[in-house]
Amino acid sequence: MSTDAQQQEQGGGPTAAEEWQRWHEGRVTAVAAPYGPLSLTGTHWLSDYPEGRIPAVPGQWREDGDEVVLTATAEDHVTVDGEPLTGEVRLGADRGPIDASRVAAGDRRLVVLRREGLWAVRDFDPGSPARRAFSTIDATPYDPRWVLPGTFRPYDDDRTVRVANADGVERGLGLGGEIAFAVDGEEHTLRVAVEPDGSLWAVFADATSGNGSYRFRFLRPAAPDADGRVTVDLNRALLPPCAFADHFICPFPPPGNTLPVAVPAGERNRVDA
Rank of each mutant, 00 (worst) to 15 (best):
S2V: 12
T3M: 08
Q8L: 15
P14M: 10
A16E: 13
A32S: 14
A32L: 10
A33N: 08
S47C: 09
A56K: 15
G59L: 05
G59Q: 11
D64M: 04
V68W: 00
V69F: 02
A72Y: 03
D76M: 09
V78H: 05
D81M: 05
L85D: 04
L91V: 11
G92T: 14
A93E: 12
R95G: 14
P97C: 10
P97G: 07
V103N: 01
A104Q: 12
V111T: 10
L113K: 11
R114E: 15
R115W: 09
D123M: 12
D125Q: 09
P129E: 11
A139W: 00
P141M: 08
R145A: 15
L148W: 02
F152R: 00
Y155M: 09
D157H: 13
D158T: 14
D158C: 05
R159H: 05
V161G: 07
A164I: 03
E170Q: 12
G176M: 02
I179R: 03
E186F: 01
H188L: 05
T189N: 03
T189V: 14
R191P: 04
V192R: 00
A193H: 07
V194F: 06
S199K: 09
L200C: 11
F204Q: 01
A205C: 08
N211A: 09
S213R: 00
A222L: 13
A223K: 14
A226K: 13
R229F: 10
L234W: 01
L239D: 00
P240C: 11
A243I: 03
A245M: 04
I249Y: 05
I249C: 04
C250L: 11
F252P: 00
A262M: 03
P264S: 02
R270D: 08
V271Q: 05
D272N: 15
D272Y: 10
